[in-house]
Write a protein that binds this DNA or RNA. Structure first.
Lengths: 259, 259
DNA sequence: TGGTTATTGTGTTATGCGTACACAATGATA
DNA sequence: TATCATTGTGTACGCATAACACAATAACCA
């Protein structure tokens, strides 16, 4: 091991110890935030996961500072992991079973038996929709990897984090019936088949091409451009973009779809 | 003031002081639960409210014991206020703005400046549907009144409790499109007009009598009895009751209504 | 006692939405 | 230039919802 790595390791241990002993001066104890961050890439719905030093995977999470709201904490967590701002973020459920303490894996660190991290946590779950290509995944200081996972290939996660992913997806699917989706997950300009594949991927079922187009256009939130997307091996499809004002109105008022 | 009242007052003060100083040995600090308890009576949707000693109104709430889940805490809170068991109870949102500490009004009590109640709280909101006539409202030891309020006449509540009522009602309305309602809010036997008025009251809009009946019967969760409800001034309507098995199946699978 | 009245039970019709399906147009490739 | 997969657009059918009409009935009162 090179000298640099030794120093880096020692530094982290010191940092961790300080966090376990004094973190509650910065963060509200017993309340945490976990984010299920959805992205869309190559016709797959992805979730952003972190890998702890011990090899186990978990959701990106964080704690609530004394002067910020829980919502703000979620926004900050998301920003720190993805370097994105102005993201679609929505609270979906709060997980409050006993034995959710986050400090279990630090029991080998001396003098931290009474750490605020060793006690019970209640975690507020949020899900986010982000534009895959704009994200540069960043591990936090407790993890050494931050990676996208296909929603169908999520590994075993710590605590109840698998349940969180399931519940987030379920909430997203239900929401799809009443609100538009896509502005946050696709590029600014996109084709109708791309939008359709997004819906099909989230719902995990095929949709009729023509009926889908009719329905989407009838919402009145899409603007068809004169450009077409060339380069594909077949007929060039039109490009669309969302009319942001109308899109946001639909986000507030809700729609009447039904897939 | 009679002697009895003086003792009662002094007792409570002592009890309160002990709660402020040592409550965190029983309850998880910084996490609370608030319940929006809906009832239905005389064609009005009601909410159960508590009145504090200082006259202000609030939602029935509680704290989470160290060995119970947040859900269990909500069940217990509900039981303590209504003396009911096996109630329909659903988490709807978690409220986490700063400055939600619950101890503000106890600042005149000596030596409690460092009470766990004086610090920030995150509150998990639940709503419940209960059968009005079966409830015997019971104030908790911090309140001296527990009373039903018409949903349209809810007074100004502490903190963000008015927002909680709004959000709970909104969630209930949305849920009405996908799941049946009534088993928990009506008597065992009820007439079709009674069920309709329940829906109309929750949604706050009139529904067509004939279409409503058709829709309800098509769900296949109702059983028409041979009895009729007599005593009214007009044609005696049939009595119905829910087929509990089918009702519960619908609660799990969801429906496709749309009001 | 029989008429009055408001309410309930049970339809019918019309409209719109979702579903299923067909065919022409197009752009790259061979 | 023919091929092929894909896109753009249109039509017919069925079902669910919305809108509406009329007969039956239980209490009340003249």
């Amino acid at each position: 091991m090179a000298n640099r790595d030794i120093w880096a390791t020692m530094d982290r241990e010191k940092q961790l110890r300080d966090f376990l002993l004094n973190g509650d001066k910065i963060y509200v104890p017993r309340v945490s935030v976990d984010c299920v961050i959805f992205g869309f890439h190559e016709d797959q719905l992805k979730v952003l996961l972190l890998r702890w030093k011990d090899g186990r995977w978990c959701l990106p999470g964080g704690f609530v500072k004394w002067d910020e709201s829980v919502d703000e904490s979620a926004v900050r967590t998301l920003q720190e992991r993805t370097a994105l701002r102005n993201i679609y973020l929505q609270q979906f459920h709060t997980f409050g079973a006993p034995n959710r303490e986050r400090g279990k894996k630090f029991k080998d660190i001396p003098d931290t038996k009474k750490s605020w991290m060793r006690e019970r946590f209640v975690s507020v779950g949020y899900y986010a929709l982000v534009e895959f290509s704009k994200v540069s995944p960043r591990p936090d200081w407790l993890s050494d990897e931050c990676q996208w996972y296909d929603i169908h290939k999520v590994p075993a996660l710590i605590y109840d984090h698998n349940e969180m992913v399931e519940k987030a997806l379920e909430t997203l699917r239900i929401r799809l019936n009443d609100y538009p989706v896509g502005y946050n997950l696709l590029h600014e300009k996109f084709t109708m088949p791309e939008l359709q594949r997004l819906y099909e991927t989230i719902l995990d079922k095929p949709l009729d091409r023509r009926n889908f187009q009719k329905k989407m256009l009838s919402l009145g939130i899409l603007e068809r451009l004169k450009e077409r997307k060339t380069g594909g091996a077949h007929k060039a499809p039109y490009l669309y973009r969302f009319d942001k004002k109308k899109y946001e109105r639909a986000m507030k008022q809700g729609l009447k779809l039904g897939f």
